[in-house]
């Protein structure tokens, strides 16, 4: 089983990397780009755990380590 985790900065937190990427895309002529938010993508391989357990465990992993709830939000997809 595999968990896909998307960690992004909360909308209230400025994302200077996203701003720089936005400007670079504008420089390439992609003027339709309004905003970019840069985040992290993690793939976690899981063994010996039931699907419903997996979801709860991955959520706890995010709360305790993989995301910082002060500045970040996360989304989980469980596959397999």
């Amino acid at each position: 089983m595999k968990a896909k985790i998307f960690v992004t900065l909360k909308s209230a937190v400025l994302d200077p990397q996203g701003k720089a990427v936005t400007q670079a895309l504008h420089a390439l002529g992609f003027n339709e780009v309004r905003d970019v938010r840069v985040g992290k993508f993690l793939e976690v391989q899981l063994n010996g755990v039931r699907r419903e357990e997996a979801e709860a465990h991955v959520r706890e992993m995010c709360e305790r380590l993989l995301a910082n709830p002060v500045i970040e939000q996360y989304r989980i997809e469980i596959e397999g």
Partner: peptide, 9 residues
Amino acid sequence: GAVVRNRTL
């Protein structure tokens, strides 16, 4: 609180 990347990168 928390710290994030410097605004100038």
